[in-house]
């Protein structure tokens, strides 16, 4: 169980048995010898929460770590990021990295960026996709873009004008040269946007692919394009945007990061432990069942990725007139 009840008892037990334990040799400075806390910036039960708990659950089994999960929802993950930024940089506290980490500072919502953290790893990349309901006049991205070029307004459900979904669709609009014709219709979350797209209140929905695996399978939604480099396993028939001539990638990321000054060897130890958890059978079967797209990035690669995304979001939000700085 990924929860707290056995934390302290287990760590006391762990301390006495440390000499006998073989999982961590002495030169790793007995890290971790205390419970590791992961602060999740979204409410219990959401996708970030579920994915992170599944990984933590696997980590507890594969690498003798006690993990305490605490949820600190608020302001698209800002609250949790600020908590972790200000906590002790000893490797015992990590934050989940919300996709919005690339946007917060540009939007003037917080001064927190990826530079305040040391990336540990990315474990899931859930690509954004463009979906229409079955029976829609639009059969492909080409149809959508041609209609837009002919002056038709395309109503697109997202979760807000500055949300990651909107950034992806504006990136597409920019690439296709139809920015003015895509009308953003914001919904407070996918649970409201998906029915709106099913009922035809909007023409198109941009959402994480994993949110609509079921609807695509049952034929209620037709995927027009997924914003990844390669087709994803859960939707083998869905074309990528690249295949239809649009060079845009974008998606929701699920990763872990520690405060900036965390020692390198501890980051390495954390990465090592959570990589094992990522590779474990229990996490891999979780991924296969929930339809999220596994996409491991090590500490350095993930950091580079976050840097690139930060720049891309900055440019796009500026063209949208949303950037404050």
């Amino acid at each position: 169980m990924t929860n707290t009840s056995f934390g302290i008892r287990a760590s006391l037990l762990g301390a006495t048995m440390l000499a006998a334990a073989s999982a961590y040799p002495a030169h790793a400075q007995d890290f971790p010898s205390e419970p590791i806390r992961i602060v999740i910036g979204f409410a219990a039960g959401g996708s970030t929460d579920t994915n992170t708990r599944a990984l933590a659950n696997a980590a507890e089994q594969v690498c003798d770590a006690d993990i305490v999960i605490s949820n600190q929802p608020g302001g698209s993950g800002v609250l949790a990021l600020e908590t972790v930024r200000n906590s002790e940089a000893d490797g015992y506290t990590m934050a989940t990295t919300p996709t919005e980490i690339s946007a917060l500072k540009h939007l003037g919502l917080s001064d927190v960026t990826h530079e305040d953290f040391k990336a540990v790893m990315r474990f899931i990349f859930d690509p954004h996709g463009f979906f229409v309901r079955s029976g829609s006049d639009y059969k492909s991205m080409d149809d959508v873009i041609n209609a837009a070029k002919n002056g038709t307004k395309i109503r697109i459900a997202t979760s807000g004008p500055a949300s990651p979904y909107a950034v992806t669709f504006q990136d597409v609009a920019r690439a296709a040269g139809v920015s003015g014709q895509f009308v953003n219709i914001p919904y407070q979350g996918d649970a409201l946007a998906i029915p709106a797209a099913l009922s035809g209140e909007v023409d198109l929905i941009v959402t994480n692919a994993s949110n609509v695996v079921g609807q695509v399978k049952s034929g209620d939604f037709v995927p027009l394009g997924v914003a990844t480099d390669e087709r994803i396993d859960v939707m083998p028939d869905a074309p990528t945007l690249k295949e239809v001539g649009i060079e845009v990638t974008g998606g929701s990321i699920y990763g872990l990061a520690a405060p900036k000054d965390t020692p390198e060897d501890r980051v390495a130890a954390l990465n090592d432990c959570f990589k094992k958890a990522f590779d474990s059978e229990s996490f891999q079967s979780f991924i296969a069942k929930t339809g999220v797209n596994p996409a491991y990035l090590g500490a350095e690669d993930f950091d580079a990725y976050l840097t690139d995304e930060y720049t891309r979001y900055g440019e796009l939000l500026k063209t949208l007139g949303l950037a404050k700085n």
Partner: peptide, 16 residues
């Protein structure tokens, strides 16, 4: 939403 997650993890796809 949590129940939905549990169904997915159980290998069942909610929907029609």
């Amino acid at each position: 939403a949590v129940l939905l997650g549990a169904l997915l993890i159980a290998g069942v796809q909610p929907g029609p």
